[in-house]
């Protein structure tokens, strides 16, 4: 069998300009349900080797988008390419290289965890039945479920179900993992393990598309982010770039609050008093260093000076403007 191009060869490792197709690329992807527009012409791009945090409140179109990537839902308009192949047309070739956890795990309740994985593996026409047992045990071990593998799925806790879902996605080597809310229902320890698993997999060269509404979760693992709201992709790019697009501000601690504000306002900053002896100045374009120089120049006594970068959550709220309410 011809080996599929490995994602481990990141863009940098590829000789002059022959960059591999992105792991996921959509163009004008749109889906209507009746008169409702669930996904509104989005151009998603997930580079190879990235851990792409796919963010958005419930009902923002993330899951519909993911279902279209995997060929479960057909787009009203637009194109989807996964691992360089058109979907859903090439699903038979693409999907064996994609592991997926879609909207929570789903298994047969009266079968054991192991029997459920056996069922999934039996369904895979391209998997080798001779290695099935070994791969199943390996996947179970990887998610720490070996001890509970013989229990019926219906008796699993939410966390164990989630782990079994991950094991299903890891039944064979993959080039792309699509994880929809992978830490749902996990305790803090389980959450940390999933995070480590995602990091390990990414280190092995896998591309991971992970959707979540837990922003701090994403911030810790993602290299890239995309922000969905009301069916639109509002921001997308490397995490650092997206974050730096947010307005950095500087917090000044000084007994001379009034003098400091006048000085900064005069220099074009929007500065407001945010506490006793504290003011915060936003500065879209100018570097942080300038603030100290300006203030010291007019004789303001400085007690402290701190740069405040927005985190993903600040940025998300700033971009979508409505927090995490379901949009109708």
């Amino acid at each position: 069998m011809a080996a599929p191009p490995q994602a481990s060869a990141g863009p940098a490792a590829v000789p002059n300009g022959a960059a591999p197709a992105p792991a996921v690329r959509t163009h004008g992807l749109t889906r209507h349900f009746g008169s409702q527009v669930a996904v509104d012409g989005i151009d998603l791009e997930v580079p190879r080797g990235a851990v792409y945090g796919f963010l958005g409140p419930n009902g923002s179109g993330k899951t519909t988008t993911i279902r279209m990537l995997l060929g479960l839902v057909r787009p009203t308009a637009g194109d989807v390419e996964v691992l360089g192949e058109a979907m859903p047309g090439r699903a038979g070739d693409v999907l064996p290289r994609v592991g997926a956890l879609i909207e929570g795990p789903a298994f047969h309740p009266y079968l054991s965890g192991r029997a459920n994985l056996r069922r999934l593996d039996a369904a895979d026409a391209t998997s080798d039945p001779r290695t099935s047992r070994a791969r199943i045990e390996q996947a179970l071990a990887r998610v720490g479920l070996t001890a509970a593998a013989g229990k019926r799925y219906r008796n699993y806790s939410l966390g164990m179900k989630q782990r079994l879902g991950l094991a299903g996605a890891l039944l064979r080597p993959r080039d792309l993992l699509v994880l929809d809310e992978p830490t749902n229902g996990l305790d803090p320890q389980g959450t940390r393990e999933v995070r480590r698993l995602v990091r390990d997999l990414a280190a092995d060269g896998l591309t991971v598309l992970v959707s979540s509404h837990l922003l701090s979760e994403i911030e810790q693992v993602a290299t890239h982010v995309g922000m969905m709201s009301a069916g639109r992709l509002l921001r997308q790019g490397p995490l650092g770039e997206v974050l730096s697009a947010g307005t950095t501000s500087v917090r000044v601690e000084t007994p001379d609050v009034d003098r400091a504000r006048t000085c900064l306002a005069g220099a074009g900053f929007t500065a407001r008093v945010t506490g006793p002896d504290t003011l915060t100045a936003a500065m879209p374009d100018r570097p942080v260093e300038d603030v100290a120089a300006l203030l010291v120049g007019v004789g303001v006594r400085l007690r402290g000076l701190a740069v405040e970068r927005p985190d993903l959550e600040d940025l998300f709220v700033a971009v979508t403007g409505e927090g995490f309410d379901v949009q109708q």
């Binding site: 479960l72 699903a91 038979g92 997926a100 879609i102 789903a106 047969h108 369904a123 026409a125 299903g168």
Partner: peptide
């Protein structure tokens, strides 16, 4: 109804099959 259909189809098993 239990959601296993979406996982079978993404294994993938073609719908015809």
């Amino acid at each position: 109804s239990i959601g296993t259909l979406r996982y079978l189809l993404t294994v993938p098993v073609s719908r015809t099959r």
